[in-house]
Nucleic acid binder design. Structure first.
Lengths: 222, 222
DNA sequence: CAATAAACTGACCAGATGGTCAGTCATTGA
DNA sequence: TCAATGACTGACCATCTGGTCAGTTTATTG
């Protein structure tokens, strides 16, 4: 987490001189990011006023601008942190594992990450769904490479006959969208479907259903 | 489509007197809604200025307010139209049909509707995902009932042994989120997954994958 | 205990944006 | 042809909001 990148560089002209960032600074920046993440995930970039962020963070508005150069800097700062989470779950998919085991681990990792970081997760998904206007080309490229790598692995499994022939990208789409749906489920769409508050049991249930219906069908019962 | 509801009622004090709404009015209102839908679906409620809507519709801003009382009125007007689309696809799920056939028809109907109305579809999904702040209680209740009805049907199929025992709500979640993902797929998330422009073939492929992986696994091979 | 740097903040500003309105032009029905 | 109503619009306004800044307070350090 390189907070420096999203800070006013002018504020710390000689960063190398003091390896330790001020305690107050560290605390307040974290608090601002927390508040901003919460609000951005709910209302999107345009739907949030920095005055709100300030209030949520318990700081005067001008103080926000002491730590961050702009509203956009806060947003992209959050986003950068999340890119690394994108492939965290994907790491589970390795050629040396059994397909069922690997896909299962992926689903559980994704659900688990979302469970632990619901705001961040929703923020990231919303950013993707709106076309990623704040993602850099490098970010996109990174995500594409991470995906391509796993597609190749799945193709290998299929070639080995360890998986039924299925379009790997479409498989990932189903897994990604389904898990994301559960993560965002404290929102209304689930209200309509009457899956109200997601409890631990519900998450288990969700994972089980995805595993059975999706994964189960692409793995031949040896 | 009752446009009257979202119009300035003061403009037509005696609606009953003339059953035919002015041609110009009809045309311009439709044009405004089209423009607004396009923009709202891209940028969300907060992300759109009515000046943009005006430009997109090719009308001066003040003219927008001649037809609609407020920005919110335009938005909720669009939304109301969409509620009816919510169950259009769900209609396919009827107790008298074969489960596989019904679920397949549902997926194809949903994909097809999204294909034909991508903006509306995305707008609606975004509204749901942000917690439906502009949906009325009646709208929510309507959606819940529509879902409940189909859950009962699926439960019946399971009781009859025509479907494997699966949580029906979770099954719908997987189907809904997966299809929605494809509909929104001209956006970045698919860029990362390298499923670029969705062609007709891609839609066929998507439908096939969903059918195979999800539906295929819940229907016992008699 | 200076003195230097970090942390903080009330007050302010420029531009944007939703919305209004008084008045003009166009259409239509008698 | 002539009201009367519908359609339209330039100009305007109140408010909001991202962002600035000059100056003050608090912490750190030699």
């Amino acid at each position: 987490m390189q907070l420096e990148d999203i800070m006013q560089s002018a504020d710390r002209p000689l960063a190398s001189q003091r390896s330790e960032v001020g305690k107050i600074r560290r605390k307040n920046e974290a608090e601002i990011l927390r508040a901003a993440t919460l609000l951005f995930s709910k209302n999107g970039f345009q739907g949030v006023r920095i005055a709100e962020v300030a209030e949520e963070a318990g700081l005067p508005k001008a103080n926000i601008y002491y730590y961050f150069t702009s509203k956009e800097a806060i947003y992209t700062g959050i986003l950068r942190k999340l890119i690394s989470g994108w492939d965290e779950a994907l790491e589970e998919i390795r050629a040396d594992r059994e397909p069922r085991e690997a896909l299962e681990a992926y689903v559980r990792a994704k659900l688990d990450y979302g469970r632990r970081n619901p705001e961040e997760s929703r923020l990231f998904a919303a950013e993707l769904q709106s076309g990623g206007p704040f993602l850099s080309d490098a970010d996109r490229e990174h995500m594409r490479e991470a995906t391509d790598k796993r597609v190749t692995i799945v193709e290998g499994w299929i070639a080995n006959g360890r998986m039924r022939p299925v379009n790997p990208r479409h498989l990932f789409i189903i897994l990604w969208s389904a898990t994301q749906f559960y993560i965002d489920s404290d929102k209304l769409a689930c209200d309509a479907l009457r899956v109200p508050e997601m409890t631990d049991d519900d998450y288990q249930d969700a994972a089980a259903t995805i595993l059975e219906t999706v994964i189960g069908s692409v793995i031949p019962t040896a």
